[in-house]
Design a protein around this nucleic acid. Structure first.
Lengths: 327, 327
DNA sequence: TCCTAGCGTGCAAACGATTGCAACCGATCG
DNA sequence: CGATCGGTTGCAATCGTTTGCACGCTAGGA
């Protein structure tokens, strides 16, 4: 900058003003300075700028698992929105571990003007700590006070699933659960139970996880239950389960129906294609950013945004014609 | 910091030294300052530190598509390695668009001490521009001079695939290609052609893309070719293609074999499970970081790291018994 | 002709840390 | 007893910007 000033025969203040389009500076000088700067290949040091200006134009994000398509797409949406607003994303992955997530948050906050916790696995206490930080925090898929909240409406989601299954005549449904630290697993269980009661459906539950392997491994337990329909924590689990059923000669859907949450792209291509709940994941990210901008603009936190998913019926659900058993 | 200094009855210099563990300071003072700092809840401003200290401890990364499991896992590996080295990741997504990638690079460089371009879609000229930047650049899955290079050994990869297929008796193979701007698609084509010639296999090619939809849409073209085996650009394309074959009554592998590159987790759960080339994607990220540290340490760029994949044979490949045709 | 706006510009102080250098201390040595 | 020295500490400059304030200049009105 000093070089530019010297070369242009002005002071650095003038260079700064010229480059930033201040209005109390003559147009000729602006043109001249711009020319000189371009010629010298000068680039303003963004870090110094942001340093001087105050809070960083960065939003820190945590996700449990980068390789999970659900989170990738949330990140896509958030990234696009944040970039449009002049912000960048600093992404951290907690590996589904609450302690690691806390460390991560603690580190990200040093470089971020805001935080987005995506499907936070934080303990209650950890979350308190995060909210006490001197930056605004938005939670995606976790409700909490004094923070922005954007979430899937699991009440509606679970109702859609169960109504679909009862419509097909199922009266006994099994839920294959997700990671214990997952808030959204808790919500899915809670809303399923409640809706099952209302619909007079028997709901059993077994533990699962978040990956295809977890679903595959749940195969025997599923068969042991006397359910005719299964709802899995997510599509990866569902697809893994479908695979076990195929390997063990159980026909889907004539012996067992399988449905799931999220509708990741690959769900349409499983065999049979998986009935699932489509949610606008990218939109989750977008809305998180919107909440953030409002808050950064000085307003209070807006009301939580709830996204209602849409049931995509595919061939993995149908009427039960036979009891499943291993052949 | 000033507050801490005042409260501790010292100068800010002393506080700085105490907190950073300088050796020319008395232990008692260190203890005292630390205590005061803790009590006041003082946290050093990392951004100011890095600003003063010089280059940012951040590595900027570009990927074409965050939702693609291949890239997610590379990011996982890179992230883990970089964090262990005290660096953070600034991630940008180009959306498979060369122009956008260039903009991205131009922005990331303002905040990064190093750049990692993952499967760069940059044009030749764009890449030159990126390499001319005042930070070290590592390319993952793209070879280039004067930069770090970490890549899959596609020569070995293509050979593994074709030898497997010829071993099963296939003499006519079709390649369903990837995005035009993808270097790795180019490499796959090049090495396949070359190996096909050596093995006396007829190789046809059609254009595809990177997603399940691209694979599904390629179905008719695949059937029109007279190939008995198909190699797809990646697993997503492969799974999409399998789905089309199923929907149209083509039996895999008895009428058509399908194999692919990458072996993403879901490949094991397609129906039939997909024969694919396993590569250590997380390791790609790790190696990229290693190259970077060497370079940042003052050395020249090390020789390119080539990772040889491993063929995972599953049920989607077998001996062709019938000519495929739509029923 | 002089005074006063008002516009354009430069000086210098910040932002929050690190660090070379000088100064100070007590102790040891000659 | 004074010089020296090692061990600590503080002063002030610095990183690359932005910006409040003061100043100078020009033009227009009285």
């Amino acid at each position: 900058m000093i070089d530019v000033a010297r070369e242009a025969g002005t002071s650095v203040s003038t260079v700064s003003r010229a480059l930033n389009g201040s209005d109390l500076i003559s147009p000729e000088v602006v043109a001249h300075v711009r020319a000189v700067a371009g010629q010298l290949g000068y680039r303003a040091d963004k870090r110094a700028q942001e340093f001087k200006l105050g809070r960083p134009l960065t939003v820190g994000v945590t996700v449990p698992d980068l390789a999970n398509p659900f989170f990738s797409e949330v990140l896509k949406g958030l990234n696009a929105a944040a970039r449009a607003g002049g912000y960048r994303l600093l992404i951290g992955e907690s590996g589904e571990d609450p302690a690691e997530e806390l460390r991560l948050v603690d580190e990200l906050v040093d470089y971020s003007g805001a935080l987005v916790l995506c499907s936070s696995r934080l303990t209650r206490a950890g979350l308190e700590k995060a909210l006490a930080l001197p930056v605004p925090v938005v939670c995606i898929n976790r409700t909490v006070k004094n923070a922005g909240v954007v979430a899937i409406d699991y009440r509606a989601a679970s109702r859609l699933l169960l109504e679909h299954l009862t419509g097909l005549g199922h009266r006994r449904v099994l839920y294959v659960g997700g990671p214990a630290s997952s808030w959204s697993d808790g919500e899915r269980r809670r809303t399923l139970r409640r809706t099952a009661r209302a619909l007079d459906v028997t709901l059993d539950e077994v533990d699962g996880g978040w990956s295809g392997n977890h679903g595959y491994d749940a195969g025997p337990a599923v068969l042991h239950s006397r359910a005719t329909a299964v709802i899995t924590f997510n599509d990866l689990v569902g697809i893994g389960l479908l695979s076990w059923m195929y390997d063990n000669g159980v026909e889907v859907p004539s012996e067992l129906s399988v449905a799931s949450y999220d509708d990741i792209p690959i769900a349409a291509y499983s065999r049979p294609p998986l009935t699932s709940l489509r949610n606008e994941r990218a939109r989750l990210g977008e809305l998180a950013w919107q909440q953030l901008t409002k808050r950064l603009g000085g307003d209070d936190w807006p009301a939580p945004d709830l996204l209602t998913p849409e049931l995509v019926v595919r061939a993995s659900t149908g009427t039960a014609r036979r009891r499943a058993r291993i052949r």
